Amino acid sequence: MTDTFAVVTVTYSSGDYLHNFLRTLPAASTQTPQVIIADNGSTDGAPEQAEADHENVTLVHTGGNIGYGGAVNRGVAEIDADVEFILVANPDVEWSPGAIDELLAAAKRWPRAASLGPLITEPDGTVYPSARRVPDLISGTGHAVLGAVWKSNPWTVAYRNDDADLTERPVGWLSGSCLLLRRSAFDNIGGFDSRYFMFMEDVDLGDRLGRSGWLNVFVPTASVMHAKSHSVSKHPEKMIPAHHASAYRFNADRNPGPLRAPLRLALRAGLAVRSKIAVAAAQREQRAADDRA
């Protein structure tokens, strides 16, 4: 197995997604990496089967559902410190040929790049906006309030970076669904912030890397397909509040101190209301889909 990079993925009853992840991985690089599966409590047997079927796969039980970032940190801890790069990816990613080698080549071109992310497509071929700006309080609020009802509003367009060309370039942050990380930079900032159970941990990571003088680089010549949100869509009553809680944490961390306490209180109240509205809307859509079925 290679000493250049290793792969970490986090599972939670990921089923066939994990099978396809491992099936398509060999074509993504000429090297054979160590793969760490950090399992957050699967009950489907898929992680155990993957370890049995693949010599380069190691299964690590995290001891419970500790969240995405915490599980990644647990997986990274299993990898020898001499391994230069860690490829973090969701188990519902499918790899395009040469994708990882393209990211590694870009890492040589950008020696100050701490994270590098590929072009991410959805199953229907739609390009997912995975390379974005770090939101500030104003743009983040505008996107949160108007994004669902006015998709072309200026705050959402700026946050999603929709107008940007598909060119290799530094960005504010990259989607944690597939991310090549320079191990030295990742360790230097303490890895993912495990306080984020789910969502926004990649925004926080990219922002902290940038504040530490590193770059986050989008590499569209590498591509993967991501069957995103297969867990989120099944449990909106849990996932949507988790998303809003992470949004509050991100903004509260960047607006500390007693003088900004009223701002944080207003932000918490506004996000709580928005979360309830979003859950109700998602549940209505679920019921309508069930009725059609």
Rank of each mutant, 00 (worst) to 15 (best):
A288K: 14
M200D: 14
G67Q: 06
G75F: 01
C178Q: 12
A288Y: 01
T32C: 11
A27P: 11
P170I: 05
V10L: 11
A50Y: 02
E51F: 08
A52Q: 15
A52Y: 08
D162H: 06
T32Y: 04
S212L: 12
E48G: 14
Q34S: 03
R268C: 00
I240D: 00
I240T: 01
A261E: 07
E201W: 00
G270P: 14
L271C: 10
D291T: 14
V224S: 01
D204L: 00
V76I: 11
T24I: 12
V217E: 09
P135R: 01
T156M: 12
L267V: 04
D163R: 11
G125C: 10
R284Y: 05
D207T: 02
R254G: 09
G75S: 13
V72G: 02
L87W: 15
E84D: 09
R74P: 04
R254I: 06
H143M: 11
G117K: 10
L18E: 01
P262M: 03
D290A: 11
F250I: 01
V171T: 13
L119V: 02
G140H: 03
F5C: 11
E237V: 01
G69C: 14
D124E: 15
R260K: 13
G190D: 06
Q49M: 14
T126E: 14
A144Y: 04
W214L: 04
A99F: 11
I79Q: 03
E51C: 00
I66F: 11
A282K: 10
S42C: 07
T32H: 09
P26W: 00
I277Y: 09
S175W: 04
D82Y: 01
P47S: 04
E122R: 13
H226C: 12
